[in-house]
Design a protein around this nucleic acid. Structure first.
Lengths: 221, 221
DNA sequence: AGGATTGCTTGACAAATGTCAAGATTTTAG
DNA sequence: CTAAAATCTTGACATTTGTCAAGCAATCCT
């Protein structure tokens, strides 16, 4: 009979601190385990970005990875566990996207230019991932299991937007004139709309977004 | 053998003008047909609002209606057709929500008060329908079949928000200081965030939204 | 090297799903 | 009233889905 306890428990809890002074063997095993979890989560993200939550099955995910479908239940307790892992992993790749531009820019114009460029590139090159984000956020309205992670990501994104705007403001010796929440709502709404138009084949969607943001940001920050 | 042609064709095309001077018999038959379509679409909307797009099956929908699952294929060519019908029907119930308040109000205060009240009531009483809207809008990022209808609804909502804001502005002898698109993005983003918080059990979500809007609207319009 | 642990594959299972056709039932028309 | 048309039910179908267990393969440990 297969030994279940150790593995199964690892599946359920998020791999946290090994902490015991005993050895780094356990540690490296845990690392390997969670490394593969992430690898599988990445394959899952790819599939989700392509098909959306509703149409993504475990077998499709496995096919995008180099493994077979059974392995998913070795690394994840169930589908929700997997998706949660995806959501968490997605976050880390996403919230620092504009940080370099923000901290490097030395003038309002420079920041604006870099931001708009990156913004456009994001829509163009990562439309799949972003439609997935909106999909998963909507799922969290129904599936409580996703809510905490989604709320945390939302918060991180809000912070990200705030960093950009307050940097932009401070480069002009000012402060943003709206709240963090309102600012994020505004940008998120504009971005979402642009994404929909872009995916619908609207070639001017990105330029329109850039123009709108270019007009809006100076009046706000 | 069952006669297919007439019925099947009616299924596919949206019931439009009977127009022929021949009789209103055909007309009343078409009306009856599309009336039942709407009846079924309403049952579907109820189910969708409860479970979300990903978890809603035709059999569940039928169970919420007074019919059995087979009937859905009598009135709809397939699942996508049904959902599209739902989306279209949803629209008509949704975009005039604030019109009475908007046109009745005689002062900025009155409009603001009525709007905030209705806004709160919408989140409180119709959270299910609205999470469905966000779900379906996200689906349209993947499923092209929904895109046109979703875009149209989005436009209608933008108009709705614009009507409110420009009325509010004109009651103060002004004009809104942001574009229609930005205004809608802002409100949509705030609403969406509020909805998520509200459904997560956050008791202050609605009040916070009302406060934020109460602060924001006068600076914009 | 050899036994044990871990990692992965294979195949199976029951449940659920979209779809459809045959027929029962109801409504309509002449 | 009766035949035909419209409406609805029932049961079936082929897939797909999440889940899991048994076993093969690779790795580790002593």
């Amino acid at each position: 009979m297969r030994k279940q306890s150790a593995v199964t428990q690892r599946k359920i809890e998020t791999p946290s601190r090994p902490s015991k002074p005993s050895d780094r063997i356990e540690r490296s095993r845990v690392d390997k385990f969670s490394a593969r979890r992430i690898e599988l989560a990445e394959a899952a993200l790819e599939t989700l970005a392509e098909l959306g939550y509703a149409r993504t099955s475990l077998r499709e995910i496995a096919q995008k990875s180099e493994f077979t479908h059974g392995v998913l239940h070795y690394y994840f307790s169930d589908k929700v566990d997997l998706i949660c892992c995806c959501v968490r992993h997605y976050k880390s790749k996403c919230v620092t996207r504009y940080d370099q531009i923000t901290s490097a820019a030395q003038s309002r114009d420079e920041l604006m230019k870099g931001f708009l460029e990156k913004l456009g590139a994001t829509v163009r090159d990562e439309a799949g991932m972003h439609r997935l984000w909106y999909d998963l956020r909507s799922q969290s309205l129904f599936e409580g299991a996703f809510r905490d992670d989604v709320a945390e990501i939302d918060k991180s994104l809000e912070d990200m937007v705030w960093r950009i705007a307050s940097r932009f403001a401070s480069l002009g010796g000012r402060q943003p004139v709206v709240s963090r929440g309102a600012l994020y709502a505004l940008f998120d709404g504009l971005f979402q709309r642009c994404l929909l138009r872009h995916l619908s084949g609207d070639r001017t969607a990105i330029a329109d977004l850039q123009e709108e943001v270019g007009r809006l940001l100076p009046t706000i920050a």
